[in-house]
């Protein structure tokens, strides 16, 4: 797994993907930081963290679009799949590389909090809880994007489909509001990505949220492994 992880990280930085991803992430988070904190002269970062959810939907597909689609297109996946490594090592090697790059991007909101702390009191507990929530949200989203990238050999298709999928997860609440069947409402409420995330930005931290996001990540990575197993057997 280490070899694949290191190669992925290297590939992110030798191609322009890492730089574009970090630039887009930091530009948008910077804009929201200015809009919701600096221009209002407040140390309450909840509005910033709420908008980070949307930023993730836009930038995570950039991170995952080439994971497996490019391997398939360049026929390098044949080298991976015939190497003495398990499918799990391949999938998680790539997954963790994307997750690490995402975590690097998350350092910026912490720096914003640091900047605010010079001018006022920052609720560090809430900031760190939000940081954790963003990390977990990204961990789940990256797993979704990785799966989609394993399904196509076209990077653009992978990016667009991932964006649509993440958008759909975001809109679970909107869809829910149009449905009037109580048990479906309950299920969709439990599945809502945004509801859990929003609760944390308001300072309501819950262990079930951690379990929820990690489960999503594990399940989608498992699906990715199954995609490769299935392809081999087809």
């Amino acid at each position: 797994m280490g070899a694949i992880f290191r190669r992925e990280i290297g590939a992110y930085f030798t191609s322009s993907v890492a730089y574009i991803f970090l630039a887009v992430f930091w530009i948008f988070s910077g804009f929201f930081f200015f809009q919701s904190c600096l221009s209002l002269a407040t140390t309450d970062m909840s509005a910033l963290f709420q908008s980070m959810f949307l930023i993730c939907i836009f930038v995570i597909p950039l991170l995952t679009m080439r994971s497996f689609s490019e391997e398939k297109k360049q026929k390098t996946e044949q080298g991976l799949l015939t190497a003495p490594v398990s499918l799990g090592e391949i999938v998680f090697g790539k997954y963790f590389a994307a997750l690490v790059l995402y975590t690097i991007a998350l350092v910026m909101p912490l720096i914003y909090a640091l900047i605010l702390s010079f001018f006022g009191t920052v609720e560090w507990g809430i900031v760190f809880a939000n940081f954790l929530a963003m990390f977990l949200l990204g961990a789940a989203f990256i797993a979704v994007g990785t799966l989609i990238s394993a399904l196509t050999e076209n990077q653009i298709a992978a990016a667009v489909l991932s964006f649509v999928a993440l958008m759909a997860l975001y809109m679970i609440d909107v869809i829910n509001s149009y449905i009037n069947i109580s048990f479906i409402n309950t299920i969709l409420e439990k599945l809502s990505f945004y509801r859990r995330y929003y609760a944390i930005t308001c300072g309501l931290f819950n262990v079930s949220t951690i379990v929820f996001y990690i489960s999503v990540a594990v399940i989608f990575n498992y699906f990715t492994i199954r995609v490769f197993e299935r392809r081999r057997w087809s």
Binding site: G2, A3, R6, A11, K75, Q78, L80, A83
Partner: peptide, 24 residues
Amino acid sequence: PELPPLYLDMTVKGYLNYIFDLKK
């Protein structure tokens, strides 16, 4: 394989080092 599984963005040395690690 018929098409060698080469990562075009790597140097020859870097690639062989990667294969070295991949094959443990």
